[in-house]
Amino acid sequence: MRPADTAWRPRADWAALRLRAELLAQIRAFFAARRVLEVETPALSGAAITDPHLASFSTRYSGPGPQYGRMLYLHTSPEFPMKRLLAAGSGSIYQIARVFRDGEAGHRHNPEFTLLEWYRVGFDHHELMDEVTELVKALLAGRLALAEPERLSYRELFERHLRLDPHRSRVQDLAARAARWGLSVPPGMPLADVDPWLDLLLTHCIEPELGQGRLSFVYDYPASQAALARLRPGDPPVGERFELYLNGVELANGFHELGDAREQRRRFEAENARRQALGLPAVPIDEPLLAALDSGLPDCAGVALGLDRLVMLAAGKTSIQEVIAFPIDIA
């Protein structure tokens, strides 16, 4: 048989696809037992994420109706409409959503993937880390042995692995550290912005070591990397954001959610300005979200967990394509 004759078949094996279905059922049972409501929100929105490092797919609606000709963006996460539900009084909610990110493909990325996203009213980011731990432990029980979880602040992480303080290092310090590590520094790294340098060191020197055989949480990010997290004043102020790693794989990103509409608008506008400086198109800001924040978001924490990566780890695979029936190249 020629190879082309089997190209229509799923990439993932049946064991992986059955495991995916089992994990989805377990997740729904976990939240049902905790009275967290499952919700669905639109994948298409008139607004997009302003983060310069995220690229939304877009399309144009061709009618019928008054929305004729409207530009619509496929969501990169269901965060904005879920916060509108929270502001409207939903209480704690979760969603299993297919999301879309242009320009992302590799062993750990597919342009279309599944996020488990949930919000807990009254939780801060540490309480939510407790719940993430319980869920992931339950899902991996009997599938992957785990040592006791650990939590490290972003500062402790860089001090442990690279012996530098990420909040006080300058670009030249980070560049020197990268050189000492023997990293090939990409051309065109900015001289006035430390974040891409921190990202370079994190992805190349630290991530592969992170969470080996255990859940490793990293929390309290530099204010410049807070995204949609609230800032905690201090010296320096930090973003109340966390990431979860397991076996070198980034699994989840969470926030103690920012509820300040004015601060959120300022961040959106700054990111749009940054997009334009980078030659990227500015995108429409989510005005309904800002209106919802303005009316009052309950104190809450939220997290998005990459389900394909979790299935990959539970199945003992090394790429998410092995647990997706039809990854982008055969979609």
């Binding site: 320009g103 992302e104 990325h109 992805t203």
Partner: peptide
């Protein structure tokens, strides 16, 4: 392709 949770890829 490598990318931190948020930020530069």
């Amino acid at each position: 392709f490598v990318k931190p949770g948020k930020g530069q890829a």
